[in-house]
């Protein structure tokens, strides 16, 4: 099977890449791509059932703060800390479940923004726990126990695993019973119910997977940057808008859309931040907006849709496509 060979070649290439080229800036860029692939895939799980969240920073921040505080104040290794971190994330997800099941369309999106914003404020004000805007610093003790390293190479592999794992989970989910049901809910919730789907339960499964992976990323990414403060941990630009943007540009509710979106947008973002950001703060977001409008107008299904049809032509599947594009009559 051609597709499998292609994936294996890609995996092998990524595994040996740091051996050949390990300039810190380059590795950082690749790590950021991996991070955003995983974050966008996590966000995408909820998008599968048609729910656009702009509050995923809440899950990121909750998990990041839980494990960071345990690490700094109690010396708990993040390997253990990620379990309470996930627990706190799931409590947060349970809170967001209420608007998820009750509000439709843009109303849920608005509620999700408020959700992350409230948590950001709480983290600002709760100085005893979070040190407020000053932030907390992760003690630098190199080694796997503390997940802090003198080079970027271990983090390259950690985020490679997280990115590959997220793509794998979404791939498995997409073709499972739950995946079909999520896509049906995205299209028509009432019809889905009438066909026997417990739409509430199915959406909760999506929410908890989505929140869980986002939380896990919060734990690892905080160790990577050594510090945490509310504006960063609950940043809507970094952890709400960016995955949504990557997902929409790549292809909403598809398996490979988030990968393509992240691979294209992360380097663009880094480039724009370093070149345009120096000119005028926020100019990079202006260019982002233009890219978004362009893609949505020219390719409403995201960049993945023409790529997929190209890929399908290149690797013919067993079942003949009967009426691609044309009417049957």
């Amino acid at each position: 099977m051609k597709q499998r060979h292609l994936l294996m070649a890609l995996a092998a290439g990524l595994l040996v890449l740091p051996i050949f080229y390990s300039a810190p800036y380059f590795l950082h860029l690749v790590i950021m791509i991996f991070f955003y692939i995983a974050l966008t895939e996590a966000w995408n799980i909820l998008a599968l059932c048609g729910k656009v969240s702009l509050g995923h920073a809440a899950f990121f921040g909750l998990a990041a703060y839980t494990s960071a505080i345990l690490c700094i104040k109690k010396g708990v290794t993040p390997w253990i800390g990620l379990f309470p971190a996930l627990l706190v994330t799931f409590i947060g997800a349970a809170a967001l479940a209420i608007p998820l099941l009750r509000l439709r369309g843009p109303m849920f999106t608005l509620a999700s923004i408020a959700f992350a914003e409230v948590l950001r404020r709480v983290a600002m004000v709760w100085r005893d726990l979070t040190a407020g805007a000053e932030g907390l610093t992760i003690p630098f003790v190199p080694g796997w126990q503390n997940l802090t390293f003198t080079t970027k190479i271990p983090y390259y592999y950690i985020f490679l695993i997280l990115a590959a794992g997220s793509v794998y989970i979404v791939h498995r989910l997409y073709y499972s019973a739950t995946g079909h049901h999520l896509r049906a809910i995205a299209s028509d919730e009432e019809a889905a119910q009438a066909l026997g789907i417990n739409t509430q339960k199915t959406q909760l499964i999506a929410l908890f997977w989505s929140a869980g992976i986002t939380g896990l990323l919060g734990v690892f990414y905080t160790q990577y940057v050594y510090m945490i403060e509310p504006e960063w941990a609950f940043s809507s630009a970094l952890f709400c808008l960016q995955p949504a943007l990557n997902g929409i540009i790549g292809g909403l509710g598809t398996v490979w859309g988030p990968v393509i979106g992240s691979v294209l947008m992360t380097p663009l973002g880094e480039y724009l931040r370093s070149y345009l950001g120096a000119l005028q703060q926020g100019l990079n977001f202006f260019v982002y907006g233009l890219v978004l409008i362009g893609v949505v107008m020219v390719l409403p299904g995201g960049i993945v849709s023409p790529l997929l049809s190209l890929f399908k032509r290149w690797t013919p599947s067993k079942a003949p496509a009967l009426d691609q594009g044309g009417k049957v009559r």
Partner: peptide, 29 residues
Amino acid sequence: RTFQIVRPFDGMTVLENVMVPTLVRHRNP
């Protein structure tokens, strides 16, 4: 039940549309 206004799930093939209900009783795709 069927609906008066036909509403196939978009973004899914004819087969996938019918798999949505069969996957309720048979979780194995």
